[in-house]
């Protein structure tokens, strides 16, 4: 599904280049649940954003579903992004002025889904995440865990193939975090490809594979054994 080859990313500050990513080469297949780990500032978010087409690499090749992303026109990229991807953020990033229901509905509006269909799709999410009673509340009326549930619901309501999550539990305490991770597992079992960034080894254990990044390089790439974490 995702094929990265020699991806580089740098920022120029005056005449000086600072590399954020160097020589990233890896493949991610449909149905994988990959965790990106590494110290702060290692380039995890940057990599996730490049894969999610929110950012682009400066060098290298990126194929998504066999399309050469870096050579595509903006419009096509936007289309790919829109039809295949869902995003979950550490800071939830709900829209303050919209209710829970409306936040979840937003991606469907941008995908021109019919009204009746929209209603049933949002209702399904509300039901699945157990937040039906909260549907008319505004984000600031919810706890962090509830906000992130809405965040996930919004990310998957349009049935993306790939779910990208940047430290989704980073702002949550462990019980709330667990709910989110259980949800990810469920989604993965249903066939969704998931790519998450996390600092927590426990969260990583929900996945199938770990990419460790340091200073912009992939340091290690190894599978997660079911039932436990492989040490190294």
């Amino acid at each position: 599904m995702i094929a990265l080859k020699n991806i580089e990313k740098y920022y120029t500050n005056g005449f000086q280049k600072t590399w954020v990513l160097r020589d990233i080469t890896t493949n991610i297949a449909q149905g994988e649940f990959v965790t990106i780990m590494g110290p702060s500032g290692a380039g995890k978010s940057t990599l996730l954003n490049i894969i999610g087409m929110l950012d682009s690499g400066d060098k290298g090749e990126y194929h998504f579903l066999d399309e050469p992303v870096m050579k595509l026109r903006e419009k096509r990229r936007h289309e790919l992004h829109k039809s295949y991807m869902g995003f979950v953020f550490q800071a939830y990033h709900l829209i303050d002025e919209l209710t829970v229901y409306e936040n979840i509905e937003t991606p469907l509006l941008y995908r021109k889904v019919k009204r009746s269909e929209r209603q049933s799709m949002v209702a399904e999410m509300l039901d699945r995440f157990g937040i039906v009673a909260k549907k008319d509340l505004f984000p600031h009326q919810l706890s962090g865990g509830q906000q992130q549930l809405v965040g996930v619901a919004r990310a998957i309501v349009a049935r993306p193939k790939l779910l990208l999550a940047d430290e989704p539990t980073g702002n949550l305490h462990s019980a709330q975090g667990e709910i989110i991770m259980d949800l990810f597992k469920e989604l993965h079992d249903e066939g969704m490809t998931i790519l998450q960034v996390t600092h927590s080894e426990k969260n990583a254990s929900y996945g199938t594979r770990i990419l460790e990044i340091e200073d912009g390089f992939i340091r290690e790439d190894y599978p997660v054994r079911q039932g436990g974490l492989i040490g190294h």
Partner: peptide, 16 residues
């Protein structure tokens, strides 16, 4: 800015 970011990530086109 944040709202714009979210909307773009959830699929908004600039014209929208």
């Amino acid at each position: 800015g944040r709202e714009i970011g979210v909307r773009k990530v959830t699929g908004a086109m600039r014209s929208q």
